[in-house]
Design a protein around this nucleic acid. Structure first.
Lengths: 238, 238
DNA sequence: CGGCTCGTTGACTATCGTCAAGCGAGGTGG
DNA sequence: CCACCTCGCTTGACGATAGTCAACGAGCCG
């Protein structure tokens, strides 16, 4: 389950500059001379679903940039139940809080096979001190976190279960690559669905099943749904 | 209702350095020479409850530091209902998003009489470029926003209405000055309560009334409650 | 072939939203 | 000064919704 594998480990200097997703990564704005400041190896890691990048409370020694796949940030409540507070996709960064010297605030768990860059905290800290070009990117990332949290608060934690599920579909339809013309979305386990929307797995299951029966979404492959956006928008506003 | 008054307007240079809450404000780490970079007036404004610092979508020309009082950040849903996503108290900053060139994402509305410093965006932007001493403070503020958003997601938007109200009381008991030994908390209108917890005003009212009857909280002056923390903790975990 | 997990569904209950009425404090105008 | 009005809080009654407990079936793996 937790199989993780080191595909490659090297001094980031060489590879980061040619990174295929650099334009959307934390180091987007760095200049060649900035990369000389990287003095610790930046590893690229491959994780399978269910693997954890880190646990809540772990000492924060690294940030992570998601190159591909999907990662959830989970917060546990005192009573043991869990709530998913954010989803990280290509270009997103996990663990910003370690730049402030704090422990990780969430658990980061892989939902879909993910390729991830592990940036030692000291590397980012040093860059953060030495070059102003990192600041904007950092701020953008903080800002994205806040925005997503706010959206989840208003969109996915308010209203009836049906509205929430509908809004989740719409949200996913927006952020997913949307390879074809038809808006298609890949869903998660019903338990994760519930943890995102603040409802039980049973209601999550029931609502999705109801949507399928009503033709609002159509399941192709397992957990892949073609969406009727208009119908979803209508259901979302109730 | 929207009466607001300019108590004083001056070049921030002189006054910011002697600010009584500077240790908790955005400019906490600035050095004397940094203040020379302030080239626009920093106004200190007094707002009454109900006044708006800014509306969602307004062009962002300034950040605000709350010196005293209480401000809510409100996000409106397409259907017109509103959700309160954050509360700002002494030392907190509103409108960080304008540093990224974006419009305000929320409406900022005063809940309790508030004294607020209005920092022109360009002043903060310039300082942000010129001195690294602002960065840590900015990051701390972004971080606080994310943390509060996450807490609201897990604490105030999950579980039964009773749990949520109990957790809100506990949260307030933590952050309020707690002048005396007895934990005492000032509440808001039932409508605002509902908008914070994602429930209707009626359920908010019912739960608070129930708490009063059960002695879990005791109302002194209007909307001021002495809290039985143990009982609240018990109720919160259900 | 069992044993497992995951999704689904049913039956029942608790909870919450809705609609509506009443109450009290504070403010206004006659 | 009092009648009146408004607004916010409370409460009741009812219906809708979601949580709970439990059972069942489909796929997966040993």
């Amino acid at each position: 389950m937790k199989k993780s594998r080191i595909d490659a480990a090297w001094r980031g200097q060489a590879e980061c500059e040619g990174c295929t997703i650099r334009d959307m990564a934390l180091f987007a704005d760095l200049r060649p001379e900035d990369f000389d400041l990287i003095h610790l190896p930046i590893d690229e890691l491959q994780y399978d679903p269910g693997a954890t990048l880190y646990h809540a409370g772990d000492e924060g020694t690294a940030l992570f940039t998601v190159r591909s796949g999907l990662v959830k940030l989970v917060q546990y409540l005192p009573d043991g139940s869990q709530r998913i507070v954010r989803l990280l996709r290509r270009g997103d960064t996990a663990g910003l809080e370690v730049l402030l010297g704090e422990a990780y605030e969430h658990a980061a768990v892989v939902l879909r096979p993910a390729l991830v860059c592990r940036l030692p905290r000291d590397v980012v800290s040093r860059l953060s001190v030495e070059t102003p070009r990192l600041h904007t990117q950092l701020m953008k990332r903080w800002h994205n976190n806040v925005k997503q949290a706010d959206e989840w608060l208003t969109g996915l934690s308010t209203g009836s279960a049906r509205s929430r599920v509908a809004r989740l579909f719409l949200h996913l339809a927006e952020v997913e690559p949307a390879c074809t013309g038809a808006p298609e979305v890949e869903l998660f386990s019903r338990e994760d669905l519930g943890a995102m929307l603040g409802v039980t797995t049973e209601t999550a299951s029931r609502v999705v099943a109801e949507f399928k029966r009503g033709g609002i979404v159509t399941e192709g492959k397992t957990n892949r749904f073609r969406c009727d956006l208009d119908a979803l928008r209508h259901t979302a506003g109730e």
